[in-house]
Simulated scan of single mutants.
Amino acid sequence: MTVIDFSAFIGRLATASGETILPFFRTSLLVDNKSSRHDFDPVTEADRAAEAVMRRLIKANFPQHGIVGEEFGNEREDADYVWVLDPIDGTKSFIAGFPIWGTLIALLHKGTPVFGMMHQPFIGERFAGDNGSAHYRNGVGERRLSARRCERLEDAVCYTTSPLLMNEADRAAFGRVESEVRLSRYGGDCYSYCMLAAGHLDLVIETELKPYDIAALIPIINGAGGIVTDWTGGPAQNGGRIIAAGDKRVHAAALKLLTGS
């Protein structure tokens, strides 16, 4: 099978998860804290319900495929095809009533992300890519995504969800980049990466990501002509410390500051 064979099914996953999530949005939600430490890592009934409905669809249609999900763990993760699911990326925004969250759906083939989608059902937006191209769709129509050119850090717009999520050393490294860019803003989660693919910003720098936080976004950014790696310049699909850029030149410049080289 090719990735194209799966595109309609990925759309079904997005629709089903969105229909499951929306009745919970901007309502009184029971919020659990998944963290065993003193920080706050929220999960809601909407997260669990959306991942459950996507898992049921995958198992019914592709029982031989693996699944990696934020809420219910991993199954057959050594399969040739593996689905990587984050039902609500940006749960903190979700529980605060802000629409800066999305459902992330990735398809991996032999460990490599070959298709990704970010679906925002409240706004009605979908960002999708297959490494070769990327597209944006809403209720009005569809257009191709293209990251913008930006050669110099001093011209760049940079995003991170929050420097407070970084350890002290990583926060200092991020600060070196932040001091050089034209504009630095916080927040966004998955939306920041999609805005990079759409050509509205130039850098996204984060740490401590899980595979389900980034896998779906890699084919979108690559398909839009951008680049996403870890802080060593290696593959990003395993998460960790991540840097995404619309232009390889600003990516290289930021990477030097991050690594102190």
Rank of each mutant, 00 (worst) to 15 (best):
D155M: 11
I88M: 12
T91Q: 10
R152T: 06
P87I: 13
R126T: 01
V140I: 14
T103F: 11
C150D: 04
E168G: 01
I105A: 11
A60C: 05
V84P: 03
G69T: 00
N167D: 15
K92M: 05
T160I: 07
F72G: 01
A128F: 15
A96I: 04
L164D: 02
V114I: 15
H135V: 10
E168M: 11
N138C: 10
Y159F: 15
Q120T: 04
D80K: 06
N61Y: 12
H109N: 07
F94M: 06
Q64G: 02
D130Q: 09
A60S: 08
F127G: 05
A96M: 12
Y159E: 12
V157F: 14
G129A: 12
M117F: 05
P63A: 09
I105T: 14
G73Q: 08
A79W: 07
H119E: 06
H119R: 10
T112G: 00
T160K: 06
A134P: 00
C158P: 10
D86C: 09
F94E: 01
D86F: 10
G124W: 12
F62Y: 13
R56D: 00
E168V: 13
G116K: 13
V177T: 11
V82D: 01
A156Y: 13
E125R: 04
V177F: 13
V140F: 14
V140T: 10
I123H: 13
I95M: 11
Q64V: 00
L108T: 02
P113W: 09
Q120I: 04
P163R: 10
V68L: 15
I123A: 14
R56H: 03
P99I: 06
R149L: 12
P113A: 06
E70F: 14
M117K: 14
G175I: 08
E154A: 15
R143I: 08
D170V: 03
V114K: 10
T91M: 12
G97D: 03
L107Q: 04
P113E: 02
S146N: 03
G90M: 07
F62N: 00
C158A: 15
G111I: 14
D86L: 08
G111V: 11
L153I: 09
H135T: 07
T91C: 12
L145G: 05
G73H: 09
A134V: 07
